[in-house]
Simulated scan of single mutants.
Amino acid sequence: MAEFLLIHGSCHGAWCWRDVLPELAALGHSARAIDLPSHGKDTTPIKDVTLDLYRDAILAAIDAPVMLVGHSMAGFPIAAAAEHAPQKIVRLINLCAYAPYSGYSLVEMRKLAKRQPLLDAIEKSADGMSWTPIQSKARETFYHDCSDENVAFAQDHLTPQAILPQATKLELGAHYDSVAKSYIRCTEDRTIPSEFQAEMAAAFAPEERYEMQTSHSPFFADPKGLAALLDKIARSS
């Protein structure tokens, strides 16, 4: 069976995959999740966080080739990992994620979307180095179809998001192109507009485009369904 490495998005950590990991294990897969620098239990200072540091943390966690899943902003560091060491990755799976256009930063890509629902739900730090979700708007933006327990759990664990890695342009080439890729679009997403996800997914082969009828947080809204879809993708690889 497959080995999965799960990478969280902005302000989250390995904790967001808590319900997906056992579901993947029940399907016979090996699955792990890590904290990117300055997220979860990682204590890297915000000022030291870069896109390269995210990339290197991912690659350091890989001993044998993996199915590399990136949620939301993690589309950028998983792509960077593929460009740097494609031999370590069986497939990239973008879960309602930014699938990078070469030469763009995540901030620049976000601005390409015709709608910007995230902007009203976050606030920048006084020093301008990070941003955090506004607690009162977190549910409607990220977790509108998730249980009260999951929303409370998430709000207790959210951390500031460093801006620098999201403002860094990513150049991609032949190494990235050589890695197999899939895209899972979340049709009820209120963070990254689902129509913009469709635009990004258009670069993927039609048979590698999938959908889930969930919010931006399918790992809480439908962990069993997400695991089943990841299982389907792995079996077709």
Rank of each mutant, 00 (worst) to 15 (best):
Leu6Glu: 07
Leu6Cys: 14
Ile7Asn: 02
His8Arg: 07
Gly9Thr: 03
Gly9Ile: 01
Gly13Arg: 06
Gly13Thr: 08
Ala14His: 05
Trp15Pro: 02
Cys16Gln: 15
Cys16Tyr: 15
Arg18Thr: 04
Glu23Asp: 14
Glu23His: 05
Leu24Arg: 07
Ala25Lys: 13
Ala26Met: 08
Gly28Val: 06
Ser30Arg: 13
Asp35Gly: 14
Asp35Ala: 08
Ser38Lys: 06
His39Asn: 11
Thr44Ile: 06
Pro45Lys: 06
Ile46Cys: 11
Lys47Ile: 05
Thr50Asp: 09
Leu51Met: 08
Asp52His: 06
Asp52Cys: 00
Leu53Glu: 13
Tyr54Lys: 13
Tyr54Ala: 07
Ile58Arg: 05
Ala64Phe: 04
Pro65Thr: 00
Pro65Gly: 07
Val66Asn: 01
Val66Glu: 08
Met67Thr: 04
Ser72Asn: 05
Ala74Asn: 00
Ala74Thr: 07
Phe76Ile: 10
Ile78Asn: 03
Ala79Lys: 02
Ala80Lys: 12
Ala81Lys: 13
His84Gln: 11
His84Pro: 02
Pro86Trp: 07
Ile89Tyr: 12
Arg91Ser: 07
Asn94Met: 06
Cys96Phe: 14
Ala97Gly: 10
Ala97Gln: 00
Tyr98Leu: 12
Gly103Glu: 13
Leu106Tyr: 02
Glu108Pro: 03
Glu108Phe: 08
Met109Gly: 04
Arg110Phe: 12
Gln116Phe: 14
Leu119Asp: 10
Asp120His: 12
Asp120Trp: 01
Ala121Phe: 14
Ile122Lys: 00
Glu123Ala: 03
Glu123Met: 05
Ser125Thr: 13
Asp127Arg: 02
Trp131His: 09
Thr132Glu: 00
Thr132Trp: 07
Ser136Pro: 06
Lys137Glu: 09
Ala138Tyr: 15
Arg139Phe: 08
Thr141Glu: 01
Phe142His: 03
Phe142Asn: 02
Tyr143Glu: 04
Asp145Ala: 14
Cys146Leu: 06
Val151Thr: 09
Val151Arg: 03
Ala152Val: 09
His157Ile: 03
His157Thr: 09
Thr159Asp: 13
Ala162Trp: 04
Thr168Leu: 11
Lys169Val: 13
Leu170Asp: 06
Ala174Asp: 15
Ala174Pro: 03
His175Tyr: 13
His175Gln: 15
Tyr176Met: 08
Tyr176Phe: 13
Asp177Pro: 02
Ser178Ala: 10
Ala180Lys: 15
Lys181Asp: 01
Cys186Thr: 08
Cys186Trp: 04
Thr191Tyr: 04
Ile192Pro: 01
Ile192Met: 10
Pro193Gly: 10
Glu195Trp: 10
Gln197Leu: 09
Glu199Cys: 04
Glu199Ile: 13
Ala201Lys: 04
Ala201Arg: 02
Ala201Asn: 07
Ala202Cys: 00
Pro206Tyr: 11
Glu208Trp: 06
Arg209Met: 06
Tyr210Gly: 08
Glu211Gln: 12
Met212Thr: 05
Thr214Asn: 10
His216Trp: 12
His216Ala: 02
His216Tyr: 09
Phe220Ala: 12
Gly225Leu: 03
Asp231Val: 11
Asp231Ser: 11
Lys232Gly: 00
Ile233Asp: 03
Ala234Tyr: 01
Arg235Gly: 12
Ser237Lys: 07
